[in-house]
Design a protein around this nucleic acid. Structure first.
Length: 933
RNA sequence: GCCUCGGUGGCGGAACUGGUAGACGCGCUGGAUUCAAAAUCCAGUUCUUUCGGGAGUGUGGGUUCGAUUCCCACCCGAGGUACCA
């Protein structure tokens, strides 16, 4: 009886889809376990062999947990709003919903054929109105909240309004815009309704602001910082410029400290935590205000080195700093203007790429040093960023390399304020070894002491205080795109935003003729003819009806890609609930994700925003946990193994790899499907694929054409993409699952090489054969030893996410049991359960053939019993000076002294020693004997 | 530059708290079976060797009876980040 994987896999996939054994229930006596793999964006290209890696690992874990008696939630869905579908719509006119649907179908087929135990009843799609209703709902909750620093949490905005009514805002410590005015309760009461709304916008956790944003002209939208890589858009690699626009913003900065602190409470990979830490960029220091001489102005600076304040020999402002125009002297005006003009022409990318060139201009103005009262010249320079801190620095050339370089370049004084340090060549930046000198009351103090002291003194003067600064900026939440969640917002007669009431959600995406921005430069939703909100009927109506009395224009922007993915893990808990984002019972039961698996590329995007939303939901009592995922694993990338042929530059010859040397050649990618396990090229196939190279002369070696191989990212353009469909067709899903795991540690990146799959495939065939003559015989001790050794190792491996070593363990087990000619049902049943998380189809089939009528997925995991592994003797390695010389079988219960006697009496020991007396004999019972001397 | 992770046969990789380096698989070599091939099975496969042995986990040092494992310095590769004051 052959192992017919095609028949078996089709049979069980159908059965699982009909009988739904993986349906999770929200109420169970069993302990819960929530395994989640990051949901995919359904791209048109479908899955390649690298994509399922994390899904397979998650599926193995989910299946294992079911065997262990847990009620497992293991859902899957689609992050189905996004740019590619919209770009495609722009090109072809096809509605993104349509292409997205097609792509999802294709994804589902591919996922289904891999045998995942997803609970498809819980599928979510971010582009589905029943889903984005709740994305809009969370947005409204954010809008209706402010952040109270005193209790360090988000509170309802109504609570802030009552405070304003009784005490104004002077006693309130809130996260708000910098330009928020002070007002009393009486003043508040006299504000117009519109002014009240404007004030509240300065406090809301999502708010409208004129922000400097990253505008990508090619994509016609703004981008968040994490969507820009090396100064160009992450998608498409288009240039990005700075532009001031009115945008929805998320006040994520309110959570900066908690996002940092929370990292200590979750089991996430260190590199991921590090990149979030860097992204948040906390720095501790002081803010200092410098008075500007002969102007009524102060310059606020933030510094992490207030201890070096006596070394400040100039100040530098960002060219965009608002004071520049005001304080520049008439003599310097021409130079300053020219400099500002020049920097504004340089793109962000230029400025980033070129960090070597030092440039700047003197404003002609002077600040006053807070302590010495000496004049400090004020410069502008583009090395100071407008967007960080206050856009101004106190420049201490002896203590900061950039200030040092700037001072050297422009011939500015470099006073030395460090004890026993030479600054002739470079600045001294070593905080830990700093002793301050030439600094009045700070002399002789170290960094910590001096910092504390100077902050005290600044506070006395009223010119500064200790401050913590974060690099993290509030997140731009508007996108000028069509294919995203519409904001549940209309603009009233004052042009102020108003939220739709919860009961009118979802606000559905309108139909448009074109997916491009309008002629007037409005976002694509500006093309919609019916995109106005009638406040009497609470429906979307034609734009013609807009009267700004009852009918108002709706927001034209849509939400960014990360909106939908910031709460999907919670929505899975109760995905069909139409009354609430999820029921209280559901979230009380599932609480949070126990295991989250996904790529590390989401470190500063999805994973940071989701943590922010979760903390917010927690503050507002909507979620019971303030971190959504306890443990997270980043699966490594599967890279491709590209194949090359070598075309001679001077002739029409194409060389096999071994014949290249000495010839000038151009390597040309060959599609990996034409290459076999021994790196031989199917030349005829290749010629058909590349007709332009069909008439070339192919120079073979030993009758074969051998390709060169190189590991590269798996991509269409490198012709190294391997499709899982083809693998499933040829070897089956179980083989693919095993092989993906067998490649190496889950978290490492590793190259794909289809050739190796024959190993796991023949393992499955051997496994299958074992079950052809199952009998009721009692297992021997040897059988049980093999089995229990395997149970122990596999269980440990799964718990450590070391799936590659389990596969090796299965192979060893099957090899041993085959050699033992064991066909005992007791052993084989256990083995089938062990294998089933990895290769579920074959396991189900074998299980059924052994007479079971219920799914193996519900069977209890075999219990490991130590007693079968107890050995009576040990083959001791006997080494001399740490080098193994021979082995000696001795009883395990033999004592140290007896072992030494037995070893010393052995003839091979005498041979080794050749009459010498050993200096020392190390005996570690049960481990090793080492003879020294 | 900084942060993080990694470096072991021809290849992917294994080695628990320091204790027999190279498990398992691919590939390769030889053999069996076959008219032949596929498939399957058996044996071998770190390098070197005068067949006794010798060397060996990126490099150099250190700790130890003993180091792939711990410590120091360096080299290389991958990822992240970068005028962040």
């Amino acid at each position: 009886m052959e192992y017919n994987f095609r028949e078996i896999e089709a049979k069980w996939q159908k059965k699982w889809s009909n009988e739904e054994p993986f349906r999770a229930i929200n109420d169970s006596d069993k302990p819960k376990y929530y395994v989640l793999s990051m949901f995919p964006y359904p791209s048109g290209a479908g899955l390649h062999v690298g994509h399922p890696l994390g899904y397979i690992a998650g599926d193995i874990y989910a299946r294992f947990k079911r065997h262990k008696g847990f009620n497992v939630l293991h859902p899957m869905g689609y992050d189905s709003f996004g740019l590619p579908a919209e770009q495609y719509a722009i090109q072809t006119g096809q509605h993104p919903a349509k292409t997205t649907d097609q792509n999802i179908k294709r994804y589902r087929e591919q996922l289904d054929q891999l045998g995942f135990s997803f609970d498809w009843n819980r599928e979510v799609r971010t582009s589905d109105p029943t889903y984005y209703k709740w994305t809009q709902w969370v947005f409204i909750q954010l809008y209706d909240s402010w952040y109270d620093k005193q209790v360090d949490k988000a509170l309802p905005i109504q609570n802030l309004v009552s405070k304003f009514e009784t005490e104004g805002n002077s006693g309130i410590d809130a996260v708000c815009d910098d330009d928020t005015p002070r007002f009393s309760a009486t003043e508040w009461k006299h504000f117009s309704e519109a002014d009240k709304q404007r004030i509240l916008l300065k406090y809301r956790l999502t708010y409208l602001a004129d922000a400097e944003v990253n505008w990508c002209p090619a994509l016609g939208t703004v981008l968040a910082n994490d969507e820009i890589v090396n100064g160009v858009s992450e998608r498409g690699g288009h240039p990005v410029i700075r532009k001031k626009m009115t945008q929805w913003m998320m006040r994520i900065t309110a959570y900066a400290q908690r996002l940092l602190d929370g990292l200590d409470t979750i089991d996430w990979p260190q590199p991921l935590k590090d990149s979030q830490t860097n992204w948040i960029g906390r720095s501790e220091g002081a803010s200092v205000s410098f008075k500007v001489k002969s102007h009524d102005a102060v310059i606020e600076v933030f510094t992490t080195r207030p201890d070096t304040i006596f070394g400040a020999s100039f100040m530098t402002l960002a060219p965009e700093h608002e004071l520049v125009q005001k304080i520049t002297s008439s003599e310097q005006k021409a130079e300053v203007d020219a400099y500002i003009e020049a920097t504004s022409k340089r793109s962000e990318r230029d400025r980033m790429a070129d960090v070597k060139t030092i440039s700047g201009a003197f404003t002609g103005a002077y600040a006053e040093h807070p302590f010495t009262k000496e004049p400090v010249p004020i410069w502008i320079g583009d090395y100071v960023l407008a967007g960080y801190g206050t856009g101004a620095v106190m420049s201490v050339p002896c203590g900061d390399q950039r200030d040092y370089d700037f001072a050297k370049h422009f011939g500015i004084d470099i006073p030395n304020i460090f004890e026993g340090v030479d600054i002739a060549e470079e600045a001294f930046v070593d905080k830990a070894n700093t002793i301050i000198a030439n600094s009045d009351f700070l002399n002789g103090l170290n960094f910590k002491e001096a910092t504390r002291k100077v902050i005290d003194e600044l506070e006395q003067l009223g010119q500064g205080q200790g401050k913590i600064n974060y690099r993290l900026r509030d997140a731009v939440f508007s996108r000028q795109r069509y294919w995203g969640e519409p904001f549940p917002v209309y603009y009233d007669a004052n042009g102020l935003p108003q939220m739709l009431a919860e009961e009118h959600l979802p606000l559905q995406l309108p139909e448009v003729e074109k997916y491009l921005p309008t002629e007037t430069g409005d976002p694509p939703l500006g093309n919609a003819t019916a995109w106005a909100w009638d406040t009497t009927t609470n429906t979307v109506v034609s734009n013609e009806k807009i009267d700004r009395i009852r009918v108002f224009p709706l927001e034209l922007n849509t939400m960014p890609g990360w909106a939908g993915s910031s709460q999907y893990f919670n929505r899975y808990m109760d995905p069909k609930n139409d009354e609430a984002i999820y029921s209280e019972e559901a979230i009380e039961y599932w609480e949070d994700v126990d295991l989250y698996i996904g790529g590390s590329e989401h470190a500063t995007g999805h994973l940071l925003y989701s943590r922010f939303w979760q903390k917010f939901l927690f503050d507002r009592g909507i979620a019971p946990k303030d971190e959504f995922a306890r443990k997270l694993i980043n699966q490594g990338m599967i890279t491709g193994t590209s194949a090359f042929v070598y075309k001679d530059q001077n002739s029409n010859k194409i060389y096999s790899k071994g014949l290249v040397s000495g010839n000038k050649v151009n390597p040309i990618h060959a599609d990996v499907s034409f290459v076999n396990a021994s790196d031989e090229l199917d030349v005829e196939g290749f010629k058909k694929w590349r007709p332009d190279l069909a008439d070339a002369e192919y120079v073979l070696e030993a009758g074969k054409f051998i390709v060169g191989r190189e590991v590269e990212k798996m991509s269409k353009s490198k012709y190294n993409v391997v499709n899982p469909d083809a693998i499933c067709e040829q070897y089956g899903a179980d083989s693919l699952r095993l092989y993906e795991m067998f490649l190496g540690p889950l978290e490492q990146s590793k190259p794909w090489n289809t050739a190796g799959i024959t190993g796991v495939h023949s393992f499955l065939k051997k496994l299958w054969k074992l079950y052809l003559g199952v009998d009721e015989n009692e297992p021997t001790n040897e059988n049980l030893k093999t089995l229990h050794k395997t149970i122990k190792k596999v269980e440990e491996d799964i718990e450590n996410f070391s799936f590659n070593t389990s596969v090796a363990t299965f192979m060893i087990c099957v090899n041993e049991i085959t050699a033992q000619k064991c066909s005992s049902k007791a052993v084989l049943e256990s083995l089938a359960i062990l294998v089933s998380p990895y290769a579920p189809h074959i396991a189900e089939e074998l299980w059924e053939r052994m007479g079971h009528t219920t799914s193996i997925s519900a069977a209890a995991f075999p219990k490991f019993e130590e007693k079968y592994l107890v050995e009576s003797s040990k083959e001791y390695p006997i080494s001399f000076n740490g080098k193994l010389r021979f082995k000696l079988e001795l009883p395990l219960d033999m004592g140290k002294d007896d072992i030494e006697k037995a070893v010393m009496a052995h003839e091979k020991t005498h041979e080794q020693l050749q009459g010498r007396t050993p200096k020392k004999v190390i005996v570690v019972p049960g481990k090793i004997v080492n003879i020294v001397g």
